[in-house]
Design a protein around this nucleic acid. Structure first.
Lengths: 198, 198
DNA sequence: CCAGAACTGGACCGACCGGTCTACTTGTGA
DNA sequence: TCACAAGTAGACCGGTCGGTCCAGTTCTGG
């Protein structure tokens, strides 16, 4: 009993977009891998672009409920959450690298660089997701500051910097085809600090 | 007297790849913009991929002799060089955003995310360029440590972290379509630190 | 002046692109 | 049971893709 067609298309497209790129993956190829015909595809998705938009939402959901929820585990002391999150990112990339023989990196980062100058709606969607991720970092930092574990700082700016650093590490690790770089550079995320500007 | 054909193709391709993506730009389009016919194109470049490889080299050269040479100005005290480099990155992106109405980001970062899983030679080339950039950071940090401006640290790891942070900032700024983010987050690059592991 | 190399113009190729269309089958509520 | 919607199959569309080919033109050294 295979999952319903729409789900199958979404899953296949997500994996392909993640592992390659938007432009490099064709609808034909997606249909073949999902064992679906063009007619069915266009029954569920009005266009390739709309599929990508749906894939982003789908991934964002999974992410928020899976990776992020776990990584930012409320049970952990705030500062340790950052280390836990780095570990989670590492194991995810490592598993993908071992399984598929390539490091897909971050789907959002990949799409952001590929599509930002081409599709403003997609850019805005990706930007929104990054904002949500930053909010997670920010909440963690706010908690750490409130608990006295960290000195007062501009938590919003620092949270954004941490997200940038995470994306940058993943970019470099992908270019090096070496997930270990995440483990090596990741912990330094805690050294990032932006003071209040008053 | 227009510059020679090869140069024109290279310049046009560079701008297009930078502002859009590898897959999104066709040879036909490049030829049209460079006022060149297919025959001439394939006289100079055996394939689109080889053109991209040449574009990367071309940009790396310009970069090493222009942006990087200036940004890592030896006349400045080492730590100030980092600020200067952030400024340079900002003005570059800002100028592009004002002129073309879009933020192209970093050509190397863009291509790295798009192509790393598709073309290992291109990935290796990009990785090499990142290594060279890291070496610049590293030399600056070594100097700062030697001068006593910074406490001893793992300069190679920290340099890599700084490069990752820079790429991450540019990625986020591009997604936000806001070059100012570089200016806002950039200076925090100096807070990044990875200790010697012994 | 001439031979050959460097270069250019542009027609042409098969493959594939995203997307459309229609005929058909299957599921579902009244 | 039947009507109609939901979903599927797959031929088909114009356009563009990267790439080839070759006839012509221009440049260059002897």
């Amino acid at each position: 009993m295979s999952p319903d067609t729409r789900t199958r298309i979404l899953a296949v497209a997500r994996e392909m977009f993640h592992g390659r790129s938007y432009a490099d993956v064709g609808i034909q190829e997606i249909c073949a891998a999902a064992r679906v015909q063009k007619g069915s595809f266009y029954h569920f998705f009005p266009s390739k672009r709309d599929l990508a938009l749906a894939v982003i939402d789908d991934m964002a959901d999974d992410w928020a409920h899976g990776f992020v929820a776990e990584a930012f585990d409320q049970a952990l002391p705030p500062v340790e959450r950052l280390d836990y999150m780095i570990d989670a990112a590492y194991y995810w990339q490592k598993a993908a690298a071992d399984l598929e023989g390539r490091m897909p990196g971050c789907l959002f980062g990949n799409l952001a660089l590929e599509m930002s100058t081409r599709d403003d709606v997609m850019r805005a969607k990706l930007n929104y997701i990054f904002d949500k991720a930053r909010d997670r970092f920010r909440a963690t930092l706010d908690e750490a500051v409130a608990a006295g574990a960290l000195a007062a700082m501009d938590t919003e700016a620092t949270a954004t910097a941490m997200l940038a650093y995470l994306e940058g590490i993943i970019l470099l690790a992908k270019t090096r085809a070496d997930p270990d770089l995440i483990l090596h550079l990741g912990p330094a995320i805690k050294t990032l600090r932006i003071e209040m500007s008053h």
